[in-house]
């Protein structure tokens, strides 16, 4: 069980500051969603939390320790990352890729034994990727690769997850499947989960808290109901929308208003009826 924290962190590339004064905390068993427009710095936060880019200022704590004092290997025991559209070597088989998740658990002179193989195989079962095991990466679709990355991070057996658009290439059935899997992991395994998500509806359905990022800072933070509002969406994304309560669980749902709302054929009554609330 670990907590991930960012204290007044500024991050960027070269001399270019991307994010400023970020305070963030993900507790065990909690799923926090990072939302915001393209290029707002969601991936940058994930890269900083996995020690790929050092922060300009501020502190990043993992399990109470400063992240710069944790070795790569120790960090890979604690935090697993699912990157967005990563490069995978096309000549490797899906199973070989998943097995790479076991790397932090193996000693210098150790090769993967039956135990490692069994763990990787189970991870593929949980993510529904077993049938891909012997296929080469070059033969897989975007969605299949997404499932494979999920299997790899499960095989890594970490205490926290950082997910960059884990559902980006998935159809709606697989989206629910993968997000359900993540929910079980954090609830049963008490994992801390931080996920960058594009889809506001999925973010609202699956996250305990949402962090809305805009122009290099945190614009809003709180429960999905507090963050996903028509006002916030209009100000951050510049998109007009209607936000409803989900008929089953009452969580916010976003419907976009297209520009063609006033085109002939759509009656005024229709519009009135839906814009009550």
């Amino acid at each position: 069980m670990i907590t991930i924290e960012m204290h007044d962190v500024s991050i960027g590339y070269g001399r270019n500051v991307v994010l400023k004064g970020i305070n963030l905390r993900v507790s065990p068993g909690e799923m926090v969603g990072l939302i915001g427009p393209n290029g707002c710095g969601k991936s940058t936060i994930i890269r900083a939390l996995s020690r790929i880019i050092p922060p300009f200022s501020g502190r990043i704590l993992v399990d109470g320790q400063d992240i710069t004092r944790v070795s790569r290997r120790e960090l890979a025991h604690l935090i697993g990352v699912v990157p967005q559209m990563p490069l995978l070597p096309s000549a490797f088989t899906a199973f070989e890729i998943v097995l790479m998740g076991r790397n932090p658990h193996l000693g210098f002179l150790q090769y993967e034994g039956p135990r490692e193989i069994a763990i990787a195989w189970q991870a593929m079962e949980k993510t529904g990727t077993q049938s891909l095991a012997e296929r080469r990466v070059s033969e897989l679709s975007g969605g299949e690769i997404q499932g494979l990355l999920m299997a790899r991070v499960l095989a890594q057996e970490t205490k926290a997850l950082l997910l960059d658009e884990p559902t980006a290439n998935l159809d709606i059935g697989r989206q629910i499947e993968i997000l359900g899997l993540i929910r079980n992991l954090r609830l049963d395994g008490n994992m801390a989960v931080l996920a960058a998500l594009h889809d506001l509806n999925l973010a609202a359905q699956y996250c305990d808290r949402l962090v809305l990022i805009d122009r290099g800072r945190i614009y809003a933070e709180g429960t999905p109901r507090e963050v996903v509002t028509a006002k916030n969406i209009a100000e951050v994304y510049g998109a007009e929308s209607c936000v409803y309560s989900h008929p089953v669980n009452g969580l916010p749902c976003v419907l976009l208003k297209a520009d063609n709302a006033r085109l002939p054929g759509l009656s005024d009554t229709h519009e009135k009826e839906f814009s009550k609330d």
Binding site: H77, I79, V81, P83, E96, N103
Partner: peptide, 22 residues
Amino acid sequence: LYARSLNLMQLDEEQAQQLGIN
């Protein structure tokens, strides 16, 4: 001795680091 690490380098450097490689 470093063959397994070299496998991980076939991902990109970022992923290799996230899987515990210096």
